[in-house]
Computed example of a mutant assay.
Amino acid sequence: MDAQYKISRRTVLQAAGVTALAPISARAQTVSAGAFPSRQVRIVVPYTPGGTNDVMARAIAQKLQEMWPHPVIVENKPGAAGNIGASDVVRAEADGHTLLLTNININSMNPALIDRMPFDPQKDLAPISLLGTTALALVVHPSVPANNTQELIAYLKKRPGQLSYASSGNGSPQHLSAEMFKALTGTRVLHIPYRGAAPGVADVVAGQLEMTVGVVNQLIPHIRSGRLKAIGVTSKKRQPSLPDVPTLDESGVPGYESEIWLGLCAPAATPAPVIRQINAAVHKILTMPDVVTRLNGQGLEVLTSTPDQMRQRAADDLVRWTKIIKTAGIKAE
């Protein structure tokens, strides 16, 4: 009996030791077998509440919670141009229960702007799907005697360095989009960075600065009131909310395209079956009429993709923005 007891006890201890040494492997197998989600899911938004990323995250989280048997929460972790929240997800367990509401800044701009990135978005994040885009618009104060792109280019070229534009911060999409305009048109305009979009737009409305590039949805009230003139939108196609405003590409700046895209990522080693399951759920959500209406009302156009398409979009944008950033000599503050 003693010998049998010792053998049995040793066997149990060995089994327990194997289990203790490989919890992640066992969990990964369980997840791969389709038991996802097995607990609360957290979507990290690396910016403050109320912004575009936050709106998208909460729209998706609400529907996921209705579809899945466990809570889905949104956690805002702002700072360092989005890198604080993104780093939190990179370090999280790669089982699909921690996700990142990412965007073009984190995946395709920060790596070109920041010399010592705390992670590599291409290697350390697994793309799930693109979620949507929001266009920008180039606007000027009514005192600027230009009503279209060609008139503005001519006006700027006669006054190199004499006019100023506002951005929502150094290295922001608004900043980089304006620098792309300067690079493609050969114009010189002084950059005045602000802490956020609102104060910069307010100073352009007040006539303190002559122009800015901003998110269409945030500029529409000023455009409709006549306090700002819309010169062109930065997207490849015209925006439904500003149908009479041409794109910069069609109005004489060939090749110009700049828009902010949003996407969903997970830690790099997240099992492929989990990625596919989340991708399918998100695609279903983004076809729901109430979700589409809610997002369109915030200036977001729904966009979905495969994980590979999202990875390629981020890689292509990184190449494009790296060239603009180097040409303009931009560095993150």
Rank of each mutant, 00 (worst) to 15 (best):
P243W: 02
T234L: 11
L113K: 08
S177H: 12
L228D: 00
I220E: 00
I153Q: 01
L248T: 04
N148W: 05
N105E: 14
R188Y: 08
L156P: 07
S177Q: 13
L219W: 01
Y194A: 03
N103W: 06
N107T: 15
P243Y: 05
G161I: 05
P160F: 01
H222C: 06
T134N: 10
L242V: 05
Y165R: 12
G214F: 05
M180T: 11
R159G: 07
L190R: 14
G200Q: 05
S177R: 12
G226K: 14
S167G: 06
L136W: 08
S235C: 01
K182V: 02
S241T: 14
V216D: 01
D203P: 01
Q174G: 15
T185C: 08
K123Y: 04
T134I: 02
L184K: 14
H175N: 13
L125Q: 03
S167W: 03
Q239R: 12
T149W: 08
L163Q: 10
P173T: 12
Q218F: 00
V139G: 00
Q239H: 13
L113H: 04
P145D: 10
P193V: 00
V189P: 09
Q122P: 00
I231R: 00
S177W: 11
Q122N: 10
P160I: 03
A197D: 06
D244P: 02
L242C: 08
